[in-house]
């Protein structure tokens, strides 16, 4: 394997990310492809901290910190100004799952519906990690968090944010993860090239403290999420044409994904939930495969 990942760095070392931070890695990988003609918006999220305490800053692009629920619309405002100034700068909204699935959903929906010319990246670590691991609507069923304790783990499945984005018919949306850097890089390149409209990347990003696992298992956990089809990698054009971009090259049971992470410990006592997840995962995968094939058939026709 020879990586296509560029050598240029747009994230300086010395960030305040925890050891093995998937969010930091996602940023590093995404910026490598976006390049330096970019500006980013950071709403409240881990990256509010990771970027460094004032007067320090780790990224080699300008960053505007903003309120929790405003990533998409602040990016919209920046883009409007840049457009008015005749500049082609790529404007990135970089939000966590809380800032995307929950509190930021309204502004995100607004920007998506208006087809704003921004690149929205949700780095999803599946809970409010910065505040100390509280459930979000991105938290998967059966998960422990401090607000879904072992006695009452997360009762509901993860919100399907990609379906929501698809419903907005935005030009480009994709799932990605830093465990598949070349796939991630290609999607970022595609998204940057699709300027002119709304682009959404849903990037699964491991959180070793929040997922309750050793820091060195971060990549493996994300990889298993993909291989077990819990987090399939695909892209979606105009909310309609779906293509699967990474086909798991080996069978990985959902249990192999769960067992790496202490947050899934409640599932040990909930075999029915595990079976339910298994069938949900299989069903969703089949639906993706069907849509993929339909896309291929249409493209061939």
């Amino acid at each position: 394997m020879r990586w296509a990942v560029p050598e240029a760095e747009f994230m300086d070392p010395g960030t305040l990310g925890c050891q093995g931070c998937g969010g930091a890695l996602s940023m590093r990988m995404v910026l490598k492809e976006v390049g330096d003609d970019a500006a980013a918006v950071l709403p409240a999220c881990c990256w509010s901290i990771i970027d460094g305490p004032w007067p320090l800053h780790s990224l080699n692009i300008p960053v505007l910190h903003t309120a929790f629920e405003t990533a998409a619309v602040v990016a919209t405002g920046i883009k409007a100004a840049k457009r008015h100034q005749g500049k082609d700068t790529t404007v990135i909204a970089w939000a966590g799952d809380g800032g995307t699935f929950d509190i930021g959903l309204q502004a995100l929906s607004g920007a998506a519906e208006r087809n704003e010319d921004i690149l929205y990246v949700c780095y999803d670590n599946e809970a409010y990690m910065n505040t100390g691991i509280q459930r979000s609507s991105a938290t998967p069923v059966g998960t422990w968090t401090t607000t879904t304790p072992d006695e009452r783990p997360e009762p509901r499945p993860k919100k399907d944010i990609m379906a929501i984005m698809a419903a907005h018919r935005i030009p480009y949306a994709a799932t990605a993860t830093s465990a598949y850097p070349d796939d991630l890089a290609r999607k970022v390149r595609t998204a940057v090239a699709a300027r002119g409209g709304m682009r959404f990347l849903h990037v699964l990003s491991a959180c070793p403290p929040g997922w309750k696992m050793p820091a060195d298992q971060a990549i493996e956990a994300m990889r298993r999420a993909v291989l077990s089809k819990v987090f399939p990698l695909y892209e979606l054009r105009n909310g309609r044409d779906l293509t699967i971009t990474v086909w798991p090259d080996r069978e990985v049971a959902i249990e192999e994904y769960f067992e790496l992470q202490g947050r899934f410990a409640p599932l040990e006592h909930e075999p029915q939930t595990v079976e339910q997840i298994r069938s949900d995962v299989a069903e969703r995968w089949q639906a993706l495969v069907d849509r993929h094939e339909r896309t291929m058939a249409l493209a061939g026709a």
Partner: peptide, 17 residues
């Protein structure tokens, strides 16, 4: 201090993690 809370240096300069 600057007028606004704008960064003045890279984390690389002094945040030796």
């Amino acid at each position: 201090y600057p007028e606004i809370p704008v960064s003045l240096a890279s984390t690389r300069t002094m945040l030796k993690t």
